[in-house]
Computed example of a mutant assay.
Amino acid sequence: MFRMGVLHFTSPAFSSTPLAPSFTYNNTKLRRFLHHPHHLTLSRGGRLSAIDTDSITSASEATTAPEEPPSLDFAFVSPRLLPDGSPDVQYRPACGGRKLRDIMLDSYIDLYGPYEKPLLNCGGGGTCGTCLVEVVEGKEFLSPRTDKEKEILQKKPKTWRLACQTVVGKHDSRGQLIIQQLPEWKVHEWE
């Protein structure tokens, strides 16, 4: 017997619109730059999933969903603006307890800009200073600055961090962070 079901397609790889995984827009700094709050909701992991509608027998079962694992929701803001003047923002969920560099590289977020070539950055050793990011929101989830960061960032703003030296949250952390990529080249100013 053939059963009809509902197919949910939530992969960010096939969308030209940035997808927001349960990211709330309460932050006035981010809301000011997001002129188009038409972002779609992304299920965790961005997977293609099929739901068998015949297996749902009552409305109460349909509303109860399994509890999602703890994760941090990131909004990565590109230093360049889109053609309409709004910032290019990419949303990604990630588990805590990892270095920000690893989260960004695993999520295909531009970290090094023109220093992407193998001999132009130290590959996460904390010696070159090319993985600079600005933490606009979510500083409470970050590890304290390391000695390498203190040395390299001594004349930079307190909100700037080296992604290769910064551990974000713990394995059970939940929250939201706004990360400005390549802050030395950003075209808009945070207030």
Rank of each mutant, 00 (worst) to 15 (best):
R3Y: 13
M4Q: 15
M4G: 15
M4S: 15
A13W: 09
S16R: 14
T17E: 00
T17L: 15
P18A: 07
P18E: 04
P18T: 02
L19Y: 11
S22H: 14
T24Q: 14
N27G: 12
L34Y: 04
H35M: 12
P37I: 06
H38W: 14
H38V: 12
H39A: 09
G45C: 02
L48T: 14
L48M: 10
I51W: 13
I51Q: 13
I51A: 10
D52A: 09
D54N: 03
S55L: 11
I56G: 08
I56M: 05
I56L: 10
T57I: 14
A59E: 09
A65C: 02
P66T: 01
S71T: 00
A75H: 07
F76C: 09
R80N: 13
L81C: 14
S86M: 08
D88G: 08
V89F: 04
R92V: 03
R92A: 06
R92C: 02
A94D: 04
A94M: 04
G96K: 01
G97C: 09
I103V: 03
I103K: 00
D106V: 06
Y108C: 09
Y108F: 12
I109M: 10
Y112H: 08
G113P: 08
E116S: 13
G124K: 02
G126M: 11
G129I: 09
G129S: 10
C131E: 00
L132S: 06
L132F: 03
V133I: 13
V136I: 14
G138N: 03
S143M: 02
T146M: 13
Q154T: 14
K155V: 11
K158E: 14
T159H: 04
W160V: 15
W160T: 15
L162F: 02
Q165G: 09
G169F: 05
G169P: 00
K170F: 07
D172Q: 09
G175L: 03
G175I: 03
Q176F: 09
Q176W: 00
I179F: 04
L182A: 04
E184C: 14
H188V: 10
